[in-house]
Design a protein around this nucleic acid. Structure first.
Lengths: 211, 211
DNA sequence: TATTGTCTGTTGCAATTGCAACATTTTTAC
DNA sequence: GTAAAAATGTTGCAATTGCAACAGACAATA
């Protein structure tokens, strides 16, 4: 599953090591809780999470923290994908993490001579497409005009992804409320309403659509 | 302004014609109101709006229409940037439009032999980065927890983009309410409150932050 | 220029939502 | 294995929001 959109898709270990050396890539290790400043301070650098987890966090003008993006193995992040005008951002390792940094500029240049570099660029395109799609999906959910509609939209999307009326919630309810930008307790109340109205069934985090 | 992120940035007319021929690109003309089906039915095809305007529209299961994206000259669209699981989409020309279609597959292949193709790919990455950033910005606004905060977040972002406390609203209030996914009349009320609280000044669509 | 349609601005009222404050259960960390 | 922390589940109440329904301004167009 991760494979299809992985930046190293279609590479075996040997080829991967080779292309990283061609690109002059750096691999750095971060302990849980550490801030990954490297990529965000260097425009045209792309960070690839090869193990562990990290979160991108925004500090708004009031000092409040919001999670912009939760990143797992295979995800990438870069200053190139961040608005110059947005509030301060930081990437923090939420588990011990290994991160590979490659330079976009070098990547483009090496494409002239290296088939491998071009393959990486191709994979990068897929990963970026995925990012666009993920954000579009979230916007679709966030523009629904009530908690009920947000939940239903989210459930329907998950159901479609699973080709089934049933699926397992892979968020905690607390995180789901955050993702949908709604109050958790109000969401729980609406979830109860949806169950009472027999629109969904919820057997310990396995949701089934009844319509 | 458009130049920096344009897919033909750094190309002159002659080079542009040359690369389009290398890539076997097609240019099609659409009259205002026509549906552009070409790209959305052909995965791996990228549509570039070279003149005119178009809107990407979603039809949800109730048959309701929502504007997903408004596209102007220089914007690109592709099935590759659209979730397989989303509701039905259509791209409709909102003004007479010329659209160039290039195949992603061919583009990647030609990069091995053509410096121009690689330049197009490079530009494509910039355009995609811009797409990611635009969506991130909208998500930032949509996750604000009240109408007041949504408005303030939007105004601050616009102010930052203009490097000034003042800027002209380039949305109608009706459209802004849509963009922020809030009720228009409730937004107008809150706008009035913001003015009364002396947080903003609004002299016929020119907003000034007073903080 | 008359007319039609869209946009702005306003308000009362009802419905939805967020907040605060709990008890309980589950998970995580030592 | 126990303590601490996080997540779930619930509710009353107040604040915010959406809805409906206007009137007037402005724009488009025939």
């Amino acid at each position: 599953m991760a494979l299809k959109y992985d930046i190293f898709a279609n590479f075996n270990e040997k080829e991967k090591r080779k292309v990283l050396s061609i690109l002059g890539a750096k691999e750095l290790f971060y302990k849980k809780g550490q801030t990954i400043t490297y990529a965000l301070k260097n425009r045209f650098l792309i960070g690839i999470i090869v193990s562990g987890e990290a979160k991108m966090i925004r500090y708004d003008y009031t000092g409040e923290r919001t999670i912009v993006e939760e990143m797992v193995t295979g995800d990438i992040f870069s200053d190139m994908f961040v608005s110059n005008h947005a509030s301060e951002l930081a990437v923090i390792a939420t588990k011990d993490a290994n991160v590979i940094f490659i330079s976009y500029d070098i990547l483009i240049k090496k494409c002239e001579t290296s088939q491998y570099a071009l393959m990486i660029l191709d994979n990068l395109f897929n990963v970026m497409s995925k990012k666009i799609i993920k954000r579009s999906e979230r916007i679709e959910l966030l523009t629904a005009r009530s908690i009920r509609n947000k939940l239903l939209a989210y459930f329907e999307l998950e159901a479609k992804k699973n080709n089934s009326k049933s699926f397992n919630l892979n968020y905690s309810y607390t995180d789901l409320a955050d993702y949908l930008a709604i109050d958790r307790s109000a969401m729980m109340r609406e979830l109860k309403n949806l169950k009472e109205d027999r629109l969904i069934k919820d057997v310990n985090k396995k949701i089934t659509l009844l319509f």
